[in-house]
Design a protein around this nucleic acid. Structure first.
Lengths: 165, 165
DNA sequence: TTAAATCGGACAACAATTATCCGATATAAA
DNA sequence: TTTATATCGGATAATTGTTGTCCGATTTAA
């Protein structure tokens, strides 16, 4: 049981998009290059975040991706569910019915309540922190100098799309 | 990201063992038959629970498995870690170093703290309930009649090993 | 009209989980 | 002491899930 690395990658991708000027978009190959992810696969992750209304895509020449919401309103949890999907960590496989020699499948399971509490508890922590917080952590952290360089670099390599603001 | 079904199976297996008379053991094929799991694979799960000091195995004719601790002292969490192992749900893949063009791998990651909190939070809920609680739930639940039948059936099919008490 | 980007589906490579098999070892009982 | 019946552990196969690739279709700036 392990979280997809795609979640971590996507969080950093969203942080990157948060560094762009208003209305600017970043090419997906540019994003995956900074992240160190495979471009073709990472495009699919970006696609999921589009579907989850976290980011917006712009077609065609000078196209790319930008945030759809304010960074305060994008939580780790949102990215987690966008990438991992909405299926829960646990789902009963109907052992109890089997064990009780029940013919009908009642889907009862004495673990369900505890398991869904546990999952809710996990998710609640992921709801606490947002992209604005994380970006600020980077801005003042050990890497703050390199972070400024990255920020400037991004503002050169992005495409501004005034019509889409 | 999904919990192994082996965890659920193992929880029910431990509940079964909790129904045996003192000192009695149950054959692994008998266990997996009730659970509805593949015998050869499920034996390996039982093995992990032996290593985790949750249950005890008895070799040879009339051998099998029984609890090692009192049912109050076996929590869902214990079974979870026995089966899933101790690796954490999240481990950084070093994206941050890549993103900052860092040469050395500092393994820094702004997600780590949140992620380990989330995991701890999930695990804490799993620590709440124990096998005694779950057994009681079954004893008074919708299936209580069938549960009694199961209990009697088990007391016939187990092997008593007075020397090992 | 062209070049450059996303979109979506099909599919391949890789990894983790589940399942099977078998020889070795331990033990109760004949 | 022998035999039948368990667990033990390693090798390996089958299955499923994740990650990665490719390409034709579509969209849009220039």
């Amino acid at each position: 049981m392990k979280m997809k690395t795609g979640v971590e990658q996507s969080v950093y991708a969203v942080i990157l998009l948060n560094l762009l000027p208003k209305g600017a978009v970043l090419h997906s190959e540019e994003i995956s290059r900074h992240i160190g992810a495979s471009p073709s696969y990472f495009q699919k992750l970006l696609r999921r975040m589009v579907k989850a209304d976290l980011i917006v895509s712009v077609h065609g020449t000078k196209g790319g991706f930008r945030l759809k919401r304010s960074p305060e309103d994008i939580r780790i949890y949102d990215i987690y569910t966008a990438i991992e999907g909405r299926q829960s960590l646990y789902s009963s496989s109907g052992i109890m019915d089997n064990m009780m020699d029940s013919i009908e499948t009642s889907e009862q399971c004495i673990l369900r309540e505890t398991m869904s509490e546990a999952e809710a508890s996990w998710k609640n922590v992921l709801k606490r922190e947002n992209i604005a917080d994380l970006t600020e952590k980077l801005r003042v952290g050990n890497y703050n100098e390199r972070f400024k360089v990255l920020e400037k670099e991004l503002q050169k390599s992005c495409s501004v799309q005034y019509e889409h603001i």
